[in-house]
Design a protein around this nucleic acid. Sequence first.
RNA 1: UCUGGAGUAGCUCAGUGGCAGAGCGGGUGGCUGUUAACCACUAGGUCGUGGGUUCAAAUCCCUCCUCCAGAGCCA
Length: 431
Amino acid sequence: MVKHTLAKNIDKHLNETVTLKGWVYNIRKSGKIWFLIFRDGTEFIQCVILKDEVSSEVFDLKNTLTQESSLAIEGVVQKAPRQKFGYEILVKNIKVMQIAEEYPISLKEHGIEFLLDNRHLWLRSKKQNAILRIRHEIIKASRNFFDDRDFTLIDSPMFTPNASEGTTTLFKTKYFDQDAYLTQSGQLYSEAGIMGFNKTYCFGPIFRAEKSKTRRHLTEFWMIEPEMAFYDINDNMDLAEEFVRYIVEQVLKNRKKELEILERDTSKLEKITLPFPRITYDEAVKILQDNGRDFKWGDDFGAPDETLITKKFDTPIMIHHWPAETKAFYMKRDENDDKFVLGVDMIAPEGYGEIIGGSQREEDIDLLLSRIKKENLSEEMYNWYIDLRRYGSVPHSGFGLGLERTVSWICGNQHIREAIPWPRTITRLKP
RNA sequence: UCUGGAGUAGCUCAGUGGCAGAGCGGGUGGCUGUUAACCACUAGGUCGUGGGUUCAAAUCCCUCCUCCAGAGCCA
């Protein structure tokens, strides 16, 4: 039975004596009174130490305690109108667990490289705490969203023998006496899943060996991928926008304090209402050309293009009906015009880029086989996938949401690296 | 891979040809309500690496290394 109190619950113990266990965040000394800013991972709270209220040993700790020293504090909970949190502790006793060595992360500014080198310590700081709590909230909201809509969680493997898209961006690894790749997407496996479970989602890490060095890229990131039997591209878009709206709503509702710590302009998030604009690829190209950009039909949009297109809207937007040439083999062609595939990208506002990619999948075995041949993919490798078109093929759709981009957007982060506890980038494998 | 930027104290940075600096952090002392507290004193340096120019290089030139931002690619 745990006998100490969590700092976040201190308001339930007004005028009572409590024991808190945690770490020193900061100390302010002033002769016969000193202040200890305490954190325990749930909240920051000021503790007041008066010479007349404690033993001289405890009072003299002001000279030995260092930032991040671990301790247990016994004291009385008092109202403190001058404090942001509203409460403080009048200390009666302090038990030191360990005096911390000189802590590298000070209360002043640091550079991103230094902070990432010290990620194991940086996790303790206020903003990182807020971001990762919001990440937690987004994951929880995602699972609730799908669980409440008759989806079953069917996770995909991390080791795969084949690629869902091109092979140049795959991490290759030894798998006993075979070669294996780290997964880029759980989609193909999810397509098998829905034939057994109707609607599924998978949630796990994804690996991309892209040599991208921007604030929007990680080599290891997490993706939430729902897949639905009997959904067409429009059903797919309906679900995607409802999903994103729900996530934003849950964070606004349950993580007010964290958004405030991050100084997020929440008015921008409150504008995320349904429906999201849906424009075709052709319409998006027209927006670019009308704004004087030299854009060639058939190309994919670059980051500056995406930002320009989204600037016209307050909410995320969905771009659908893409030129077939640049898109993956499994996307279903538009029956009215086979130049296009029934793919959709959702682009977040404020320049945070693509957060969702999805499509209606090709369910016709002959069309699928011809795509596989045309792209020189191994038919043998995809045999199990082609089986899904042999045994009761149905129209189906799905999409994947990049978790860290979504976290970054909702938090208003400068860096996607802050949206994951242990970021992996092209130049970073530690800590 | 390409383009641009940076590397000076533990950290964040100033110094751009003539004595190696500041703030924070560390140490010592002071202060009874502090809010990234404040005040005084103090310790702390292979100026990324290797070479070159010069009476003299952190500073100018070249090599390499590392990191950052972006492009391409992508979520």
